[in-house]
Simulated assay, not measured.
Amino acid sequence: MIGGKVMPIVIVRGAGDIASGIIHRLYMSGFNVIALEIEKPLSIRRTVSFSEAIYDGETVVEDVKAIYADNIEIAQTILRDGNVPVLIDEKALCIDQIKPVAVVDAILAKRNMGTNKYMAPITIGVGPGFCAGDDVDYVIETQRGHYLGRVIYNGCAALNTGIPGIIMGYGKERVIKSPQDGLIKHVRKIGDLVNEGDVVCYVGNEKVKASINGVVRGLIRENLFVSKGLKIGDIDPRAEVDYIYTISDKARAVAGGVLEALLHGLSKGDKNGY
């Protein structure tokens, strides 16, 4: 509530680290936010992902609490208590009942997973796979560089390059990918300092080693089945442990773009004249 006015509900599809940065920014700006996730989220940066509430019941990211809700009624109670509900709703079926003022697709699947501009008065697509004016009302650029976080009012986000952002000269070396199909077992945990060649985890019976020195910034949840080539971890060569527990610069930039698009839509009364 701001100035005695009850703020509208925004639904965010996805609750990984980028989506959680968006959720956090909208929450701190006074909006009521509901996050939608799949049954078994595959978040890497779990310390800053509201998706962890699916597994643990609740989680906190920078002093904002998210709580798992197994139905819409519980979600509404969580909202009234001043927290962020996380629902398992892969197809976003709850939208018809909740009737949010905006839907933000932050799944970051590099393609559109079914979001369209008729889902809500304001619709926002995050990253590749969306074109403003066709799929959604606004698109937010997620590619690192000059245009990161830019609101696209007409047109599409840059295509996915498949190349991770460069940190201290390292790009693809930072990313840990699964060498095969299998269950993941941790040897190290998020926050551990590692050296090149250290075993970080196993997938099945195969060792997965660090390619660089740094801190384990992200690691997919243990005992999940992962497929060959899936990103399962992330090493930060800066070795700043505090970065692990705070929203990234990229997530904040993207979140700022989402907030701009949302406020722009509210100011002009997008589609349904909200």
Results as ranks from 00 to 15, higher is better:
G155E: 07
E73R: 11
I95G: 04
H186M: 06
V103H: 05
E62W: 13
R150S: 14
N83G: 00
A251I: 11
V126Q: 04
L266A: 08
N32R: 15
V6F: 02
C94A: 14
Q180G: 10
R80D: 11
G145E: 10
Q76E: 15
C156M: 14
S20Q: 02
I23W: 01
K228P: 00
K250W: 03
I67V: 15
V103W: 02
A75Q: 01
K250R: 06
T77S: 06
V60R: 15
N213E: 11
Y153A: 06
M113P: 13
K65G: 10
N213P: 05
L36W: 09
A158V: 03
N112G: 13
I235F: 12
E141Q: 12
K177F: 00
V104P: 05
L183E: 07
V48D: 09
I190K: 06
G229D: 09
G14L: 03
D56L: 15
D96I: 02
V126D: 01
L108K: 10
K268N: 09
V61E: 01
V10N: 04
C201F: 06
V10E: 03
V200L: 15
T123E: 00
G129W: 01
E62F: 11
P179H: 12
K228V: 01
L159M: 08
K250C: 03
L26E: 01
L36N: 09
A109M: 12
G30H: 05
H264D: 10
G218D: 12
K117D: 03
Q76R: 14
C94Y: 05
D63F: 14
Y245S: 06
G21V: 03
D70Y: 06
N83V: 00
T142V: 15
E37F: 04
H186W: 15
R252S: 03
L93Q: 02
I232C: 08
E260F: 02
P179S: 10
A132I: 01
K91W: 00
T115Y: 04
S20H: 02
V241E: 04
G155H: 12
G145A: 10
F225N: 05
V84T: 07
A158G: 05
L148I: 15
S211F: 03
Y68K: 14
G4A: 13
I247M: 01
I23H: 02
A157M: 08
I18Y: 01
V199I: 15
R150T: 11
R111H: 14
V101W: 01
G4C: 07
V216D: 06
G155T: 07
E62C: 12
T123Q: 00
I140T: 03
R252L: 04
I44E: 13
P121R: 11
D56N: 15
D137T: 05
E62P: 13
N272H: 13
I152Q: 08
T161L: 05
K110A: 08
G149A: 09
